[in-house]
Design a protein around this nucleic acid. Structure first.
Lengths: 256, 256
DNA sequence: CTGGCGCATTGATGAAGATCAATGCCCGGT
DNA sequence: ACCGGGCATTGATCTTCATCAATGCGCCAG
C-alpha cells in the first residue's frame, strides 16, 4: 500500500494523538485502511483554554468534533440559572453529538481543562457510513455505551443518596479515566470544583463538601484540591452499588 | 425485483406495522429497496402480555428487538429494591439497545401494555451497515435522539422540582405519543400507575399523588385512571420549562 | 509584601419530599 | 351481592438536602 508507506515515512504521531482509534479498537479489529481513515477523520485541530464555551445550547452547531485531549463538560442551564451537568467528555469522546443533528444545540459544552478538538465535517461523517461500514457499526456501538453511562447517571440522580452518588461518581470516573490513560491505579486528577461536582450530581455545593468530609472520615476516599485518592475500593464500591460492567466494551460479534 | 412483486402480491400489511420505517423516515427519503429491507428486518414477532419482563438486567441479551406495538419501560432495580425507570419505549423504538451490545443486559425492560416485538439477529443488524449505509447513518441519528431524551430526563431528575418534573413528563409524552399516533390533540392514555410515574421521576408514590392534585387544582391538567388531559398547554409548558425541539427529528444533511 | 478573588468549609435554618400508616374506592371474580 | 386486591388518597412525622451567610485559606497579580 502506498498510503501505508507514506505514513511510515512521515514522523508518525503517537497513537494517542488519534484517541478515536483507541476508542473504537475494543469493538473490532481495525484494518490499516480503517486506521488511516480514522486518522484522516481527525480534521484540523482547534485549541480552547479551560472554561471556554465550545457549544452553546440553543445556537446552531454544524460540526461534529472529536475530543483529542483534555476534558469537557456537557450541561444544560435552566432559565432560573440552575445547571445540570449531563456528563464529562474524555479524550476520544464526541463533542457536538447529539447537538449537531438538531436544528440547534440541545446542550452546551465547555472545556474544563485546556483542550484540543478535531472538527469532522458532515460530509466526512456521513461518507464514513458508505465507505467504512464497519466503522459505522462501531460508532453505533459507541453511542450505545454512551447511553449506558447516561442510564447509570439517571439511577444516580433518581434513586441514590448524596453520599452514594458521590461514591459512584468517583468510581465511574476512575474507570473511565483509566481507560483513557488519565488515571493511576487508585487516584486521578479531577478538574472539577465542589460546585461543579454538585452540578454533576444534582446537589448543592455545601452538601458536596459535607459528603467529601464524610468519605474522608470513613477512610473511603479523599478529594483534596483536584486530586482524588481512593483508599478503600471495596467499601466504596459496595456503598455506591458500583458494577463497572456498563463501562466495558466488548467486540461486536461477527465484525472481527 | 422479484421481492417487490412478492410483497405486492401478498396482502400488504399496513405501513404502521413496520414502525421502524416511520421512525427513520424523518431522517432521509427512503428508497423502495430500503423500505423493503426495513420491512424484512422486522423478524418473527413475539407477543407479550402486559407486565412481563422482556429483558432482565444482568442476564445475557443476544437479540436486538424492534417494538412494533404497545409500550415498554426500561428500568433498573437497585439492591435495596428501589427502582428507576429510565425511559418509556414506544412503537418503533429499540429494545435490547444498548443491552445486547454488552456481555449482559445493563437494564431491564418490561411491557406496560400488551406488546408485539420483532427480533433482529445480530447478523442482520450488522449486515445492514454494509448493505444499506444510509440506514446505518439513520440509526446513528436515531440513537442521538434517544440521547437527547435522556439528557432531558437528567435535567428533570437533577434540577427540577417534583411539580415541574410531572409537568415536563406529561408534555414529553404528549409529543412522543403524538408522533407515534397514540395521542389525540391534548390527551392520551398513559399505562402507568402513580407508583410507576414516581419511578420515572425519582419520587415517591404519595408525592406524585399530591402533585397530580395540584395540577388539577391549578387547572393545568388532569390525570384520572390512565387518562391524561391537558387543560392549559401554555401554562403547563411554562411551568415545565418545556421546549419540544429536542424531540424533533430533522433530515440528515446530504443524505436525501 | 499585600490585596483580592475563587474556592473550601462550617453552621443555622427551612423547605421539599420520603416514609409510614390508615382509609377508601373501584373493579373483577365468584 | 360479596369479597379481595390493587391502587388512589390523605395525614402526620421525619430525613435529607437546599439555602443563606459567614469565615477562612491559598494563590496569583501587582
Amino acid at each position: 500500500m502506498t498510503q501505508e508507506s507514506v505514513l511510515l515515512a512521515s514522523p508518525t504521531p503517537p497513537v494517542a494523538t488519534f484517541p478515536l482509534v483507541e476508542k473504537l479498537r475494543p469493538y473490532l479489529a481495525l484494518s490499516d485502511a480503517e486506521v488511516e481513515f480514522l486518522g484522516d477523520l481527525h480534521g484540523p485541530r482547534r485549541k480552547y483554554a479551560r472554561h471556554r464555551e465550545i457549544i452553546v445550547a440553543g445556537r446552531r452547531c454544524d460540526h461534529f468534533f472529536i475530543l483529542c485531549s483534555g476534558i469537557v463538560s456537557r450541561y444544560k442551564v435552566l432559565p432560573d440559572g440552575k445547571r445540570q451537568i449531563l456528563d464529562l467528555g474524555l479524550p476520544g469522546d464526541f463533542i457536538g453529538y447529539p447537538s449537531c443533528l438538531f436544528d440547534v444545540a440541545v446542550n452546551s459544552v465547555s472545556s474544563l481543562t485546556d483542550v484540543e478538538i478535531s472538527a469532522v465535517s458532515f460530509a466526512q461523517l456521513f461518507s464514513l457510513f458508505a465507505r467504512f461500514p464497519r466503522i459505522g457499526a462501531a460508532l453505533f456501538c459507541a453511542s450505545a455505551c454512551e447511553l449506558a453511562i447516561y442510564n447509570e447517571h439517571l439511577v444516580d440522580l433518581g434513586r441514590r443518596s448524596a453520599y452514594e452518588r458521590l461514591a459512584h461518581l468517583i468510581l465511574e470516573l476512575m474507570v473511565r479515566l483509566r481507560v483513557a490513560g488519565l488515571a493511576e491505579d487508585l487516584s486521578f486528577t479531577l478538574p472539577l470544583t465542589q460546585e461543579l461536582i454538585a452540578d454533576v450530581l444534582g446537589l448543592s455545593g455545601p452538601h458536596i463538601n459535607r459528603m467529601v468530609r464524610c468519605l474522608r472520615d470513613e477512610g473511603l476516599a479523599t478529594i483534596e484540591g483536584h486530586r482524588v485518592v481512593i483508599h478503600d475500593l471495596a467499601s466504596l464500591s459496595t456503598l455506591a452499588g458500583f458494577d463497572e460492567h456498563y463501562l466495558t466494551r466488548r467486540p461486536i460479534p461477527g465484525l472481527l
